[in-house]
Design a protein around this nucleic acid. Structure first.
Lengths: 249, 249
DNA sequence: TAAATTTGTCTATTGATATAGACAATTATA
DNA sequence: TATAATTGTCTATATCAATAGACAAATTTA
């Protein structure tokens, strides 16, 4: 065998501090089950040796995760994993927020943060099959499950066809229910483009993240069963709390 | 309209240095067409004001992107955008490396970096429907397009059924061609789970990334048309060079 | 109870990060 | 050919990040 396996290695002088990198590693270790929930983490000295850094650096990483609510440190006893598992958000032909998280969460809902009417940008117009500058309604929403933010989305709709969808959304708290009021009883995911980046200040505030966090970004178009585009959306998911499970589209 | 749009804001004391955050912002701005290709970036003083940092901090960000091959700085003239567009890697029922990037690239191939026979870990065994500890062949590969690394993957195969696939892979440079030698003339993507994280040291080396970069991670299972699992894989894509386009699975 | 284990706090030192200002070098423009 | 605009280099300073060591405080274990 040639080659080497990805070691528990870190990068110095990277623009990302060591404590942040180690916090990421601990999160990852929890996510893949390396560190069990409600169990103690290895002691700080062991972690320091494992990652090849000073104990104080490990302490900075742990402090950040305690701040995030992932760990709890108890003097004399140890540091314990609190974190719930990463949610698995299904993306498929019929991608729906609420139904997708059933079974993994006891409660979930969408909050309408803001809405506005605006001229369609180039990409929105293309996605919806409208002329550039045509009036569209934008809904800014946040998805929450068991009290934690799990998504932050902007959705655009043809303003002529869906006038009043903002009010419907505020009332029902559901895209699916709101569309039903306009005679849309079914819709399909036509396309999804996926990328990732660092969370910006808006993401940090909206998703209750710590600086340095990563967000998954999806840009999607939903259509009626006969192919008419009805919704263009861009969603952000906190990578530390959500993974995307791609099923049959 | 309530709410605010994502501003050009940055986070201090975040564990991610300002120059890295600004480099990310510039990359993003290029990706969404804010800064056109082959056109000059705004001058350093303008960027510094725009992002609310010192000119030298902007210079650090630009230096990193010059190092990455995204920008070219010319004294007295300006700093220019070189970057090729982000590749759009399709993921669907028949996900194939080479065909997926046709049209976007002139050349692409897979390099076999290493191979080994090993006992199946828990997740590999589950994915392939084998007993834990059963012998599997692991292929470590890198996908390259137009001379740039675009993916880094580990694939696992049942060692009994696919003995010699490592040699076939080394010879053909294609998973599809290698599987064909074992009578597999078609295979389908059964499941894909997607996440994102910071690149670790191995990713940086393998994908020629700068520290602080983000990688998209997919964990997938391929099956024969009648549902037999044949390949379990974990792939990493550099988020700054690749986006994933989900098509009909 | 005593010893061992583990987290918490403090001081000190070094290097990386970020700001600030001045000026040189190169190129485009009036 | 000046002048302006822009990137490149240098010095200096303050703060953050990381290492190092010592010891306190709390808890568990022998």
């Amino acid at each position: 065998m040639v080659g080497r396996l990805a070691a528990d290695s870190i990068e110095r002088r990277s623009g990302v501090s060591l404590w942040r990198q180690i916090a990421d590693k601990i999160l990852h270790a929890i996510a893949i089950g390396d560190f069990a929930e409600n169990a103690p983490l290895p002691p700080e000295v062991a972690l320091a040796e494992r990652y090849g850094v000073n104990r104080h650096t490990v302490r900075s990483a742990i402090a950040a995760l305690v701040q995030e609510g992932v760990l709890r440190a108890e003097q004399g006893r140890g540091t314990f994993v609190l974190s719930r598992k990463r949610l698995s958000y299904p993306i498929g032909a019929r991608t729906r927020f609420s139904t997708g998280l059933q079974g993994q969460t006891t409660e979930r809902h969408i909050v309408l943060l803001a809405s506005s009417v605006e001229p369609a940008s180039q990409r929105v117009a293309e996605g919806l099959g409208l002329a550039r500058g045509a009036e569209v309604i934008r809904l800014e929403t946040r998805g929450e499950a068991d009290g934690r933010p799990v998504s932050r989305a902007a959705g655009w709709f043809d303003a002529r066809r869906f006038a009043g969808i903002d009010a419907a959304m505020a009332e029902t708290g559901s895209i699916t229910a709101s569309l039903a009021r306009f005679g849309i009883d079914d819709y399909l995911r036509q396309s999804t483009v996926l990328s990732a980046r660092h969370a910006d200040a808006a993401d940090l505030a909206d998703l209750d993240l710590q600086p340095g966090a990563i967000v998954l970004v999806t840009v999607a178009v939903n259509v009626t069963p006969d192919g008419q585009p009805i919704q263009f959306s861009e969603s952000r998911f906190p990578a530390e709390r959500v993974e995307l499970k791609l099923s049959a589209l």
